[in-house]
Simulated assay, not measured.
Amino acid sequence: MVASVNSSLVSLLTSKGQDATGGGTIASAAKARLSPAALRHAAASTGAASAAQALETSQRKLGSELRAALAKAGVKLGGAVEFSVSGTGAVDIKATAADKAAMQAFLKADTSKPSFASRIATQARDALKLSGSIQQSAAISQAAKAGKSAAGVMSLYTSLMQQPASAQVVFSLSASASTLSYPGSLTASA
């Protein structure tokens, strides 16, 4: 992944006809943030769009199978249960006390292979990976547009990629639907 990013940046800088010693926007790089437009553009790229489609298909299947398994186990949700996974791997379940307890009991008793907890974790990992790729593409694009020199582009790109990760994946499940949202995505629902 790093090699492809470096290759993309080198190609970009070569096409601009600049060397890595020129001045640029180094001072302004520290204040830079990824723009929503750059994220939308990166998410719409062919590779990201097909990965998002595969993730949406997986999310729909997981939501349907989880709702069916809950119904078979006699678990009725009163509202939505949100499984959120941060970029650091921390998992949180948000729901009413009754729904949270029922879901935790269901997941603890689950003997399916792979387990639903494992499938939710895998989906979150895949969404975080896609989100990282979208953010990286957006950073390359935004740095290329704003950098006035090779050094400026590299400085801005580095600054954008070193921002604290606010990545969080949320898989929400209710009795009738499920949704998946992650940074750089439109919400996929089923």
Rank of each mutant, 00 (worst) to 15 (best):
P114I: 11
A124N: 05
K145H: 10
P114W: 10
S178D: 08
S141H: 04
M154F: 06
A71E: 14
A68N: 10
A139P: 00
L62N: 04
Q59I: 09
Y157F: 15
Y157E: 02
A175Q: 09
A80T: 11
A95G: 02
S112N: 13
A95D: 03
S58P: 06
S141W: 00
F116R: 03
Q123V: 13
L173I: 05
S64D: 15
T96S: 15
E82R: 06
L77M: 09
A143C: 07
Q168F: 06
A98F: 06
E65Q: 14
L107E: 04
T96Y: 10
G89F: 04
K108T: 14
S86T: 13
A109L: 05
G87L: 01
S115V: 10
T158P: 01
M103H: 08
K94G: 02
L130A: 03
A109C: 07
A150M: 03
V85C: 08
I140C: 04
P164L: 07
V169Q: 01
Q162D: 12
K113F: 09
A150E: 02
Q135E: 13
P164S: 12
Q123A: 13
Q142A: 04
L77V: 07
I134N: 03
S155Q: 08
L130R: 05
K76D: 13
S137L: 08
R60K: 15
Q162I: 04
P114V: 10
A69R: 01
F83V: 03
T111C: 08
A98L: 08
S176T: 14
T96K: 14
I120E: 00
S159G: 08
Q142K: 04
A127L: 02
K108A: 15
